[in-house]
Amino acid sequence: MIPDFPRMTGTPFTPADFDAVRVNRTAAERRAASLTARRSVKKEWQAAWLLRAVTCIDLTTLAGDDTPGRVARLCAKARAPLRPDLLDALGLEPMTVGAVCVYPTMVPHAVRALEGSGVPVASVATGFPAGLTPLPLRLEEIRYAVGEGAAEIDIVITREHVLTGRWSALYDEIAAMRAVCGAAHMKAILATGDLKTLSNVYRASMVAMQAGADFIKTSTGKENVNATLPVSLTMLRALRDFQARTGQKVGFKPAGGLKTAKDALAWLILMKEELGTRHMMPDLFRIGASSLLGDIERQIEHHVTGRYSAANRHALA
């Protein structure tokens, strides 16, 4: 999908935008819990929302035993995420996922496998998942992934900067990464499970956007706690505040722990309630997942046939 808005440029470092913010965890948790309790999507509307979720998935493999063959199979699923008989029953044209996300060395294999599909290749970089390699090496990793054909780069921040309140250092680091990304869109992974407080999550989100991040992303998927609704709500409130101040649109990506169709619906409801329908499109919303697609396809089959199938009928690849 080609965005209908200018790309993020960021702003100068402005601590006044976040210094005084304190997030009430109890209130955030109460608001997050109310979202799915007060809202539900049923029948054909649920199927439509799940189809939207498919187009927003960053289909991901980030395993130590990744091979070109595994990546090629994942890319085949990205090209055709739903079985043709299900699309025919719904009267739909073929669709694709939002992107395929891999390690830098797997980028050229993914690029070849996705040629002509329109599906972009995203790559994690900057010492993923810890982000504790020296900054010059992290910047070089971005250059490598972009040079191999990655159209999107998922960077990780230095959590130490957040935990010690070194906000200008965090801004400088992310701005340097954005500069090296060039035309590739940058998603800033905040690793929110490591940031201790929701106030830190809000401040890190704001700094990342000021530094030019095209998306802010919850997690690497490797932390003990990954994407949660209270954390996502906090990030979306920061995103909304930033957009109100600057007029610049920023995307959001939850990742880690989203495995079921019910999870996808919960985050779509959050996007709808907090930011509106426009932010439910793949140029502003992505879901980082590896196993989620199989459950969504299973739910779509239930909508079409009235029967639940075994999970192994909807293998990822």
Rank of each mutant, 00 (worst) to 15 (best):
E274T: 13
T220W: 01
E273K: 05
P230T: 03
A227K: 03
L258P: 08
T228A: 04
G247L: 01
F215K: 10
R240M: 03
T277W: 14
S219I: 11
L292C: 06
L270A: 04
L270Y: 12
A227N: 02
D263T: 00
F252W: 09
D263Y: 09
N226P: 04
L293Q: 07
F285R: 09
K259R: 13
S219W: 06
F215A: 00
P282R: 00
N226H: 00
R278I: 04
P230Y: 10
L292I: 02
T277S: 14
G256M: 04
F215V: 07
R286T: 11
M235K: 04
L284W: 14
F252I: 08
K272I: 13
T220S: 11
Q248P: 10
H279D: 05
K272C: 12
A255S: 15
L275E: 07
W267R: 08
A244G: 13
G257P: 07
Q243P: 03
L270R: 08
T277E: 15
R240T: 06
T234G: 07
P230H: 08
D241C: 09
G257S: 01
L258S: 09
L233K: 04
K253N: 06
A227D: 09
G288D: 08
G221D: 05
K222R: 12
K259Y: 07
D263P: 03
Q248G: 04
L239I: 00
F285L: 08
R237M: 15
L284I: 12
L284D: 11
L258W: 08
A227R: 00
R245S: 14
A244H: 08
L275K: 06
E273G: 08
S219H: 03
L239V: 02
S219D: 10
K222Q: 12
D214V: 05
